[in-house]
């Protein structure tokens, strides 16, 4: 995987930095954050060496950061919760495709969040971090296929959509476990996210005598968990001037 990532950089760049860059990548396990950051760095190098970007004075390049992950977490959690509220029909009738699209949009945002917020977790729990991203990504693809099938083919694709959407909750649970264990972000928020994700999977099974209320409550917990982790990450990604002493 490491050599594949290095090959994403231009040949001229590899000739100058390739050897030392490879040595750095061997220093610790690569997590989703690192891979996303390297891919953005490769894109930056490709554009820069082709002369398409000239902002070298500011040292601004493409990079993955806690801030991007945090903002995606806030957005993803909120969009998911909105999808549930609209989907169960407690605020009036909306076209079924609206909550379906919200779920997929939320899943895509959570994928960015999972990559952006997993930098420290992946060094201790690389398997959990990668599994969280992989399951959410696979679920998103299945959910998109489900939506397309629902719109174009038949109602039977509903199950594919539901199973795909569950991927985001399973992925969130794994991410919450890794985050809680490493205390890389707020453990309280990670606990809330993990518990609410598991309860949402249970509440979504149907047949509950309380109707949609448990699903709404657990999904709101899910959204609040992501929101708190997102705020936590954005605060951590403060300017260097506010950095704590080493």
């Amino acid at each position: 995987m490491r050599s594949l990532l290095i090959r994403c950089y231009p040949a001229r760049w590899r000739a100058r930095y390739g050897e030392e860059f490879a040595a750095i990548l061997e220093e610790r396990p690569l997590g989703p954050f690192d891979v996303a950051d390297i891919l953005l760095g490769a894109l930056d190098a490709q554009l820069r060496l082709r002369g398409r970007r000239s902002d070298i004075q500011q040292g601004r390049g493409f990079s993955m950061s806690l801030r991007i992950g945090g903002l995606a977490a806030i957005l993803g959690g909120a969009v998911f919760a909105l999808g549930v509220v609209l989907g169960i029909g407690i605020v009036g009738n909306v076209e079924p495709v609206v909550p379906e699209i919200l779920f997929v949009t939320g899943s895509l945002a959570l994928l960015v969040a999972l990559a952006g917020l997993s930098a420290f977790q992946a060094r201790v729990h690389p398997f959990l971090s990668w599994a969280a991203v992989a399951i959410t990504a696979a679920g998103t693809i299945v959910a998109i296929g489900g939506i397309v099938g629902l719109q174009l083919v038949a109602e039977e694709y509903w199950m594919a959509f539901i199973l795909g959407t569950l991927g985001a909750f399973v992925g969130s649970t794994l991410f919450a476990i890794a985050t809680f264990r490493t205390a890389a972000l707020s453990r309280g928020a990670a606990l809330l996210l993990g518990v609410s994700s598991i309860l949402t999977i249970g509440a979504g099974q149907g047949g509950n005598i309380l109707g949609p209320i448990p699903l709404v409550v657990t999904t709101l917990g899910f959204a609040v968990g992501w929101f708190m982790l997102g705020i936590n990450a954005v605060r951590l990604d403060r300017p260097a001037s506010e950095a704590r002493p080493a």
Partner: peptide, 17 residues
């Protein structure tokens, strides 16, 4: 020093500049 992760892609993009 900052508590923020720095990826290798970001490091080398900045170092090159």
């Amino acid at each position: 020093g900052t508590g923020r992760p720095m990826g290798a892609g970001t490091l080398y993009a900045a170092l090159a500049r």
